[in-house]
Amino acid sequence: MQKKQLIIFDMDGTLIDSGDVISNTINFVRKNLGLLPMPKVELLTNINNPDINSAEFFYGTKKFTEEQTKLFGDYYHNNCISDISLYKGIKELLDEINKHFTLSIATNASAQFANKMIKHLEIKHHFDYVIGSDTVSNPKPHPEMLLNTTKTLNTEIKNTILIGDSDKDRNAALACNMDYLLVNWGFTQHTNQNVIANVEDLKKNILSFR
């Protein structure tokens, strides 16, 4: 594989275990809409499913409404740094690879929330750029975030790799011919043998791109 200069990370399910706050937020919205809570496993399994209409699946509407967006945003703003943690080994991984690569984040969460979360977890200093769904017209699996990042950081796609946990990450990378790696400790469980099983293996893979 081509040597890399830039590593773009997905955030939720890749760097940060935010399953509790995501499921709690969606179920808060559902409760306010008069809907029953959804089991956490079912919710997280589908949060990054590119084959469903998320608004319809979680809230029963064709599109996200202003009420849903406000309820979600208010609850998440107040709770996004509670019940989150870095996956084991991620801090050490970032400490090591940041010596050799430029690092950035491309997340379907808002950049505002993402910056708040990575600051709370004391990893913000590792990232030269954070892009979220509030700063693009098309979130992942559209490649807009990845193309925006490479342009902003003046790096060619061939010298960039995306690290994520979901099919949305994979499809975004494929859409702009970017290399990618999928990890298997996030919200999506993969059976492909090429998926990275643990953080130590991820570190070995990334350092091989020097």
Rank of each mutant, 00 (worst) to 15 (best):
M1W: 10
K4E: 00
Q5F: 09
Q5G: 07
F9A: 03
D10S: 07
M11H: 07
M11W: 12
D12V: 02
G13H: 00
T14P: 01
T14E: 00
L15R: 04
G19W: 00
D20Q: 10
D20N: 13
D20E: 15
S23F: 03
N24L: 13
I26P: 03
R30G: 02
K31G: 00
K31S: 07
L35Y: 13
L36T: 08
L36V: 09
P37L: 10
M38C: 03
P39I: 07
P39R: 08
V41A: 11
L43P: 00
L43E: 00
L44I: 00
N48P: 07
D51K: 06
I52D: 06
F57L: 13
Y59T: 09
Y59G: 02
Y59K: 04
T61F: 14
K63L: 09
F64R: 11
E66V: 14
E67N: 09
E67V: 14
Q68P: 02
T69Q: 02
T69S: 06
T69F: 06
L71H: 02
G73H: 01
D74P: 05
H77G: 05
N78V: 13
I81N: 10
S82G: 00
D83E: 08
D83Y: 03
S85D: 12
K88C: 06
K91F: 12
K91D: 14
E92D: 12
E92W: 03
L93H: 08
L93W: 02
D95M: 06
D95F: 02
N98M: 03
H100C: 11
H100V: 13
T102Q: 12
T102S: 12
S104L: 08
A111H: 05
A111R: 08
Q112G: 05
A114C: 14
A114T: 15
K116G: 03
K119D: 12
L121E: 08
E122H: 15
E122Y: 14
E122Q: 15
I123N: 12
I123L: 12
H125F: 07
H126E: 02
V130A: 03
V130N: 03
S133Q: 15
S133I: 15
T135Y: 05
V136H: 05
V136K: 10
S137D: 04
P141Q: 05
E144W: 02
L147A: 04
L147T: 04
T149V: 05
T150K: 12
T150P: 10
K151E: 13
T155E: 11
E156C: 11
K158L: 14
T160A: 14
I161K: 04
L162A: 13
I163D: 01
I163H: 01
S166N: 04
S166K: 04
D167I: 01
D167P: 00
K168N: 08
D169Q: 01
D169N: 00
N171Y: 12
A172E: 03
A173H: 13
A175G: 07
D179C: 05
L182Y: 09
V183N: 02
N184S: 09
N184L: 07
Q189D: 01
Q189E: 04
H190E: 06
H190K: 11
H190D: 05
N192E: 01
N192G: 00
Q193K: 15
N194H: 10
N194K: 14
V195N: 01
I196V: 14
A197T: 08
N198R: 03
V199H: 07
E200T: 13
E200F: 08
E200W: 05
D201W: 02
D201K: 06
D201Y: 04
D201E: 10
K204L: 11
K204D: 10
I206W: 07
L207P: 05
